[in-house]
């Protein structure tokens, strides 16, 4: 496992633990946590807070027949077999969305050699896979909201740092950046945004209307 240098914020881990993040962000959190023991244990801590909050929220009596109803539920619900894909570069939560691993992604071109697959879009937040050939830049863009980018293959660099496999960049609207995939192997990342990316030049803005980036 590569050494991970860029982690999730407390805010995101707490939101995930509380179950209040949009699905798009939850997928990035679950995927990063699958790769990162540090964030898995930090998440465990926020879940422990949730457990304590739940235990002190105040009990409300269950209905009289609730225990029998639960035992009937146990007896009558067949075990749902969980679909498992062969081990690849994508952790299990991401494989579930893709329906497989790297070779099963249904890529669509978005221009400049960059390809994407949109995985989920809910409550204004969208999560997609991006495939950026080595040495290629994703057009200079700022954000109107929060953007999470998790690297799954290769690496990218921007004005702030280098991001390798397992690293997650948390960018807010203050960060105007130009991520460039490192030379060599294409960079594959999982990116979630809660607002459309806003490109800083005229042409990509037009393209944006067609490619939903």
């Amino acid at each position: 496992m590569a050494e991970i240098k860029h982690h999730l914020t407390d805010q995101l881990l707490m939101g995930y633990a509380a179950g209040t993040l949009p699905e798009a962000f939850s997928l990035v959190v679950a995927t990063h946590v699958s790769l990162c023991d540090e964030c898995r244990s930090r998440l465990g801590e926020f879940e422990a807070v949730g457990g304590e909050v739940m235990m002190s929220a105040g009990a409300v009596s269950m209905s009289n027949d609730s225990f029998a109803a639960t035992m009937a539920l146990i007896a009558n619900t067949p075990e749902a077999p969980q679909k498992r894909y062969a081990k690849g570069i994508f952790p299990a939560p991401l494989q579930d969305y893709v329906g497989g691993d790297k070779d099963d992604v249904r890529w669509r071109p978005v221009g400049g050699g960059v390809r994407q697959m949109i995985l989920a879009s809910d409550g204004g937040a969208t999560v997609r896979l991006l495939h950026i050939p080595g040495g290629v830049a994703v057009p200079d863009h700022g954000h109107r909201g929060l953007e999470l980018t998790l690297v799954l293959q290769g690496a990218f660099k921007d004005e702030s740092d280098r991001f390798g496999v397992g690293d997650v960049e948390v960018a807010n609207e203050d960060l105007n950046h130009t991520p460039i995939a490192e030379e060599g192997e294409a960079c594959i990342c999982l990116a979630a945004t809660d607002a459309p990316l806003k490109f800083n030049s005229f042409l990509p803005r037009i393209a944006q209307r067609f490619v939903r980036i």
Binding site: G19, G44, E47, A48, G50, G51, E52, V53, M54
Partner: peptide, 16 residues
Amino acid sequence: RASVATWIFTIARNRQ
């Protein structure tokens, strides 16, 4: 890795 209350909380949150 988790107390029983923590574990049950995560199940409750997912079902919710």
